[in-house]
Simulated scan of single mutants.
Amino acid sequence: MLGTLISSGLLLAGLLFFIAGSVGMLRFPDSYSRLHAVTKADSLGLGSVVAGLMFYCNWWQNLLMLLIWLLVLCSGTVSCQLLARFCKTKQEQA
């Protein structure tokens, strides 16, 4: 019972982070703010979803989810950095 409540809370927190990132991407004025909102909120949202799903999976499935989350964290930061540099060079050229 307690595990179900904790899992539901983590899944709900992940959903709220995903919604906040989507709203931030639509509402923030410049590309740097949008990139920050999407990268941070999606990383936290996926981490919360993975933590919430860990209550229902085997140890090898938990390990696989953690590895996928780490891959998404690394690729998200690298892609955000590359997009920010691309935006900066486009602004300097204009």
Rank of each mutant, 00 (worst) to 15 (best):
G21F: 06
M25Y: 12
L67M: 09
S31K: 14
C74S: 08
L64A: 15
L82N: 13
L70R: 03
K90V: 11
I68H: 03
S43Y: 04
K90N: 10
F28W: 02
F55R: 03
W69F: 06
V78M: 06
V50P: 06
L71M: 09
S75V: 08
L64Y: 13
I68L: 02
L64R: 05
G21H: 02
G21D: 09
V78G: 00
G76W: 00
K40F: 05
S48Q: 01
L53T: 12
D42Y: 09
Y56P: 00
K88A: 14
L15D: 09
L46Q: 07
L44W: 14
A37S: 10
A84M: 11
A20L: 07
S75Q: 08
I19R: 11
G45C: 02
L67K: 01
V38C: 06
F18A: 06
C57D: 09
N62G: 11
A84R: 09
R85V: 04
L15A: 14
M65V: 00
S75K: 05
H36Y: 03
G76V: 03
N58L: 13
L15K: 03
V38P: 00
G52N: 06
L82M: 15
C57A: 08
D42I: 01
M65F: 15
I19D: 11
F55L: 05
M65T: 00
W69A: 09
L70A: 10
N62V: 00
D42L: 04
Q61F: 00
L35S: 12
K88R: 12
A51M: 10
L26C: 07
S22G: 15
S48T: 02
T77F: 11
V38W: 00
A37L: 01
S48H: 03
L15H: 03
A20V: 06
W69C: 07
L83V: 08
L64D: 15
Y32I: 10
R27M: 11
C80M: 10
L71W: 12
L82G: 02
V49K: 02
S75D: 01
F18Y: 14
S75A: 04
L66T: 01
W69T: 06
H36W: 04
L63S: 07
V50D: 11
C87R: 13
L16H: 04
S48I: 01
G47E: 04
Q81C: 05
V72T: 05
